[in-house]
Design a protein around this nucleic acid. Structure first.
Lengths: 202, 202, 202, 202
DNA sequence: CATGAATGAGGCTTCATTCAT
DNA sequence: GATGAATGAAGCCTCATTCAT
């Protein structure tokens, strides 16, 4: 007979994650202290530790959540009625990334999660799963490209997925660190290289 | 042990960088303590601090050095007599990356540097420069692609560079975190997508 | 041990200041380590740093407190119903100083604060204020001397304050470093020089 | 059969003391590192340590030298043919102090030495001696005041010295920390209080 | 005689986490 | 359930001094 509703608990959890996301996006996993999270969330130390067992726990939850969101955008896109060309798909994803890349946006957590995966065995697992899941979707997309006749019949769609998936981290890094390439520029580059469905073929 | 040669000094510097590289590749920038570096280098705290004024200084030197090395491999490749196809070029780079990706290899520093750039203003500068320099080389390559007739005459070679550059971080992350795609797989994927110079066109 | 009273917090603060005063009086600001303060106070590092943000902060609090105390003694004395002669006043102050000059007494902090003010810009401010405040009181006293007819009508009471204020640091240094002059000796010297209110004038 | 002349050694010693004086006046005993002294003197670590056995040794030499200088000025003054009044004497001394109080002047070492004497047993000795020697001179002056008829015949000239000596540290501190009182102001204050030899007596 | 690279103890401070209230 | 004061290990770096060259 819990005193507080399940819903209340979930709300508290999310409140903490939101605060942590702001902190981590601003200052990074390591340079944000738990004190920062307490202050940002408006909760006490004890309260936060009731919902998460450790700082790593919060990071794991947040990293997973963030990578899941990007994946969902992509999943939705490739399941649309008309198959988007790579350029269209990438334009959509890049726009979404930009929208979530503000100074406190969740996309800033992605490179930190990649880095963490190299260094903390506990993190390796969930980052790995997230990347594999992402690659599965790209694989699925590559299969559809094959079906659409955009790839030779004997194409190794897994290899194609391995190649295409790089477009995203490439864009994320350029966007976050340099700040310049617009989604349109990236899409134009991709369209130039992979001009499927364009009026003029190569 | 005074009045040592310039060369000795440089050797000491490199000795410290080598030790730091091992530490950082193994445990990450943050989780490697300076004590780790002292122990790994066989030098005392004071000795290390004679050559580098802070831990951040070592990180900067190492990150810059590492990113420069990768860039040089690429620069050399695209200046070869015969212009490599994207697949050939990527195969070469990916092989190089794999060779430097052992448990203590310098490539493991790259994602850490990207992450650092988002979080430490002092790091932003040199990581940014490294990425821009890399993109310049890709831009140069894209220009050569144009000249080789692999791109339409009105192609935006800058946009092409923005797209192509992603192949590298994409591969690095997959290789370091998942461990699976071989350089050949990546090259095959690229060759499938960009079949320039292949006997049979699409 | 949360949700403690305001009073508890203040007690802790004073507990730390008391411990620090002992340490600093014994070994000086610089030669007392924070570890010494932790040990003397019976608190952990973290606890101390909850109340003071740095060692300098503790020093500042202590120096100010100490200089304020001496000033209060003097303020009280010169506001007494009957104006004390310089000799009486100095006797009182010197007695007070001796009482606070034990091996762990706060007066030992004064010369250290003067020294600090020459060397640490952050300290200059509060030491300066303390000296100026002290001089204001001496100025006030000099004005009363004028009113009492102890000074010529056209006397520059500010200049008199500048001169008289030296009696204190002079006594403090002699007492702390040499150990010998008693308050009575000093008072006798002053009475000899400034025999106001004495039965026989010069 | 020394290789270098005694004179050369003495010159080196003084070169080091001069450099150290600059450093210590600027940043204080503690905050000046030996490295600072090496740099300022243009000598190597080994060279400096050939002439002084330790940092404390340099401090001791410098503190003693400085306090001796001030004493000599005073000794000379009171041995002049005509006995100066206290106001005249103090004016002279204060002028001398001001002249040596520049940002790198030796007078800045005095308060540091006083402070040191409270804290380092090795320093207590020589600071104590310096103060006692100074007081001896004031005592001598007080005796002359007696002879000049400025003091009652039964005056305790030692007590008078104890009182008068404070004028100097008082002025030094006000001058160094606050910066304001001019030698003239101090002298005017003293003349007001001790108007010996003035046309109009009290 | 001089050099200056090397030493290494020790200083200040931070911060994830706990638990008495 | 919540609070927040307290813990204490561990991190980065400085600096007086030595001694091989």
């Amino acid at each position: 007979m819990p005193r507080v509703s399940e819903e209340h608990l979930e709300r508290r959890r999310q409140q903490i994650l939101d605060a942590a996301r702001l902190c981590f996006a601003r200052k990074g996993f390591h340079d944000s202290s738990m004190q920062d999270v307490f202050a940002e969330s408006g909760l006490s130390a004890g309260a936060v530790y009731r919902y998460f067992k450790s700082k790593d726990d919060i990071i794991a939850a947040l990293a997973t959540q963030t990578m899941t969101e990007i994946r969902e955008v992509m999943a939705e896109a490739i399941h649309a009625e008309t198959l988007p060309t790579p350029a269209e798909l990438i334009a959509l994803l890049a726009q979404n990334i930009v929208a979530r890349s503000g100074p406190e946006g969740p996309v800033r957590l992605a490179p930190q999660a990649w880095s963490l995966a190299l260094v903390k065995p506990e993190a390796t697992g969930y980052v790995r799963e997230a990347i594999l899941a992402m690659r599965d979707i790209w694989h699925e997309y590559a299969d559809k490209m094959l079906t659409a006749g955009w790839l030779p019949e004997d194409a190794d769609t897994n290899a194609v997925a391995v190649a295409l998936i790089g477009l995203l981290p490439g864009f994320i890094l350029q966007h976050l660190i340099i700040g310049d390439p617009s989604p349109e520029t990236l899409a134009r580059g991709v369209r130039t290289l992979l001009p499927y469905g364009e009026p003029a073929t190569r």
